[in-house]
């Protein structure tokens, strides 16, 4: 199955693009599995102060399950104000 990635801030620089995709053997994976794969493919994510995930405009815990076609928002440390 495939997941869509939508990156913001420095996450775009690390991804090298605004959007990308990740592919998995399983039909459903937790965001902790997404995190592992992401850091594996793009090691610079490991150097960020934090990386949070969101789907449908809500922050999600790493135990949250995602499946084919879901869009994962990659939220590096926010710095408004």
């Amino acid at each position: 199955m495939e997941l869509k990635l939508n990156a913001f801030g420095i996450a775009k620089d690390i991804l090298g693009a605004k959007t990308s995709k990740l592919y998995f053997e399983n039909e459903q994976v937790s965001l902790s599995e997404v995190r592992l794969k992401l850091v594996n493919v793009y090691p610079d994510f490991a150097h960020l102060a934090s990386l949070r995930f969101a789907t449908l405009d809500e922050y999600r815990e790493d135990s949250f399950e995602v499946g084919n076609g879901d869009e994962i928002l990659l939220i590096p440390p926010v710095s408004g104000g």
Binding site: F8, A54, V78, S79, G80, G81
Partner: peptide
Amino acid sequence: IDELKVSVPIWKK
């Protein structure tokens, strides 16, 4: 202002 800097997805370059 404190919480804006923690939870609102806005990024400053």
